[in-house]
Design a protein around this nucleic acid. Sequence first.
RNA 1: GGAGAGAUGGCCGAGUGGUCGAAGGCGCACGCCUGGAAAGUGUGUAAACGCCGAAAGCGUUUCAAGGGUUCGAAUCCCUUUCUCUCCGCCA
Length: 424
Amino acid sequence: MLQIQTIRENAQFVIDKLKVKNVDATENISKILALDAEIRALKTSLDNNLMEQNRLSKEIGILFKSGKAADAAPLKDKIAELKISEKEDQTALDQKEQEIIDILVLLPNLPHDSVPVGFGANDNEIIHKEGDDSNMDETAVPHWDLVKKFDIIDFELGTKITGAGFPVYKGKGAKLQRALINFFLDSASAENYTEVQPPYMVNKDSAYATGQLPDKDGQMYHATVDDFYLIPTAEVPVTNIYRDVILKESDFPIKNCAYSACFRREAGSYGKDVRGLNRLHQFDKVEIVQIQHPYRSYQTLEEMRNYVMGLLRKLELPFRVLRLCGGDMSFTSALTYDMEVYSKAQQKWLEVSSVSNFEAFQANRMKLRFKDEETGKTKLAHTLNGSALALPRIMAALIENNQTDKGIVIPQVLRKYTGFDIID
RNA sequence: GGAGAGAUGGCCGAGUGGUCGAAGGCGCACGCCUGGAAAGUGUGUAAACGCCGAAAGCGUUUCAAGGGUUCGAAUCCCUUUCUCUCCGCCA
């Protein structure tokens, strides 16, 4: 959520920035400014009213103590009068505050200066490319056929047990996935990320704090009996560790990593992109989360990007890095890099990681702050996160790119985790 | 799931209707003391919001959350959430 103070002080700047995300906020911003002025006037009037009531109550207390209780009656009448206008102010205030929040919550985060203008995936800026992204010959087999041939992932079985998008990993397929998870977690630990195992279900407050609610309500599985949501990413529970927390500057940077299963309804996506492992309802991911001082968050974003690039390099996968354009960025993000690996058999780039700086947007919703040593004031911290990495598409690319006559060759870096060097 | 007890500041803990944002202790910060440190000692030690911005100052709110009684609630009543103990169930 944008800070009301930012809007109050830089309304035009906010409007201009939101245009980069293709949002015309002119009307909403002027509504917000009007409501904000009304709210402050009401607050002042209400505060003065309450102050008067408190003063009179104290007087009554003194009268009671000194045995002059009878003299209190006129004061009581006065308070009764004040209470009528208090109630009016309070009702109006509650209503206006709800109104302003209802609008604020719909405004996305402001994009960073470096974010290119654009409407969709085609407008993203390719800022880096690495590895051999030539295509394989015509005999190359897509992963959904390979996994069947080697009996390592069974989509039909998952459909029987649950439904489409819930595959069953078997034998060396299950082991390869576990190897990747361990490789990712060990790598993060080596970079001083503290490993956590979060809950896979969260309450409404948590889903709201990281921005899944109210914007992406329909994308999460909802366990209605207890009103819990299945997490779409570990970002949600891990970032919420720091909800309503005031940090010290010396706590920065906070670095957490977490493996979790992720659950996404993916309502509205059908067709070619959902084939095989490309888009699932349940998948595994290792997530890295950092909380940083506002001055250093962009430096941290670059570190995180470099870290993820390093993982892809070790896995010997061709990849590219995109700087997302305004139209393709998420609601909460100020700057996002996507990493895509090239699947030589599908002849397609597959998104395997998204690294973002949310600046103070999530922190504002979840009241994640720190004490500024210079001023002694509490200020909002910056939150960042990234996938490091999402498993299914990595699996798909490894299986496809490493197919040989003899089987699927396991990259060197994973062999100590898998215990085998080929799937055949 | 049933029965009971509880939830107070960074932590421990007092407070059962009035001047209580809250005693005391610990911790922390700064100072004194010391050659230096410990001990001792003094002072300070929450957040949000409003009063045109900043500072100062003033005010409002906050003792799990929400509602109620009262001129006045940490304190009384109701609801919810959570924690602990016992019983039941159980990986």
